[in-house]
Design a protein around this nucleic acid. Structure first.
Lengths: 216, 216
DNA sequence: ATGGGGCGTTTGTGATCACGAAAGCAGGTC
DNA sequence: GACCTGCTTTCGTGATCACAAACGCCCCAT
């Protein structure tokens, strides 16, 4: 039930449970940009006091998943176009490297898993399910990058995803595409062929494509 | 007096003061790897209760500056050689991009500032001052990267520095070099010449050089 | 000497409260 | 009608406390 693999699953610590749930909601676009949150409200939702809510929020703010106003109010970030461009460039840098490192270890079982996930992506697209699309799309990338055996890099990539979550939801909400992900097929083909330059290009294109529509 | 530029300097909030101070101590190698900390101890040092100490620690843990044991004990990270390699690769990826983006905006005033900072680096090296070396070295890089006008990327780079802080201290402590930083001069020369490939190579070499001595 | 058991101490966690500031809202004025 | 001026509510911050788990230390038995 918890698709996000953490380094060490352990105690049912309250603040960690709140953190994981909020993190998923933000990363997968459950919350629109600028959405306000309160410590007391979060505590109520998860039936905990303000203390664990505060720790979870503090952690998410440190990761860029949430932002604090000057007076300490909590909300999801509203990204400027400059920041979106930066985050897309970071995705390109880090994820191309992750894909490149995963390539030598990408066996047939992985490629088949990626195809299965990709059909789930197509299904989400067909159903106009923005959250489902974001979730399955990120699962596609994460599944590939896990093979890179580079946890620090993967964590960085996930941090970028986290920051873009609400914005991606708003973005894919307004551009109602119905065509399945094209570049995912290119990624799979490059993996099959062991074509590293092709893989790098396919990943770079895939992670930066959606941004071209966001000129403003 | 606070060299680290934050997004918004505002209130004298207790937890933020604790955070900033601890962050500097970690980033600049004031604490050795594996050094243990306690919430009550931190609170005592800064004359606050456990609450702000806890928030500062939570934030630093989220950034990778500190790690928590399975039972929640706080300590500075002890990095495996694989993780060090990863972090060095991340530095290379991100900082090369930052330098490249800073290049078109690097005027003479910036280059002179870099030279001034670089002489401070040399002085720290001559005095065997590990903390001073790390601090001035990072100031050199940060000064250059600030010109890139890419706050999200700079934040990522600083997060990597933060994670490497204690290890860098331990590293530079055991290899007592006395020669001034060679690749900083190459960086400055490439900036002067507007030589982008040269700059990229110089930065990449500079940020990955210290790692070769850490084969273990 | 060395390994194991027992106990006092230290530590993180979560709940609760007081406080001050910010935000939202109403009513009144220009 | 728009704007400002109060007031009321809501919010984040920091302090304090109870609790359970862990750590560390000492002592003893082998």
């Amino acid at each position: 039930m918890t698709p996000t693999a953490k380094s060490s699953d352990s105690l049912p610590v309250a603040h960690d449970r709140v953190y994981r749930s909020l993190r998923q909601r933000v990363m997968y676009g459950d919350l629109p940009p600028g959405h306000a949150l309160t410590l007391r409200g979060i505590g109520k939702d998860y039936e905990v006091s303000m203390t664990p809510a505060r720790e979870a929020v503090r952690r998410l703010v440190a990761e860029g998943a949430l932002t604090l106003s000057a007076s300490g109010r909590i909300s999801t970030p509203e990204l400027s176009s400059e920041r979106i461009e930066e985050l897309a460039a970071l995705r390109a840098l880090i994820e191309v490297e992750l894909a490149s490192r995963a390539l030598p270890r990408a066996h047939m079982a992985l490629i088949e898993r990626l195809q299965t996930i990709n059909s789930a992506v197509s299904e989400a697209v067909a159903h106009r399910d923005a959250v489902g699309y974001i979730r399955t799309n990120l699962e596609f990338h994460r599944t590939l990058y896990l093979r890179a055996q580079a946890p620090a890099m993967l964590a960085m990539a996930e941090t970028v995803w986290l920051q873009m979550g609400p914005t991606m939801r708003a973005l894919y909400g307004k551009l109602r595409r119905t065509e399945p992900p094209h570049y995912h097929r290119l990624i799979i083909a490059a993996l099959r062929a062991g074509d590293e330059p092709g893989l790098r290009l396919a990943v770079r294109t895939d992670v930066t494509q959606g941004l071209r529509l966001l000129a403003t």
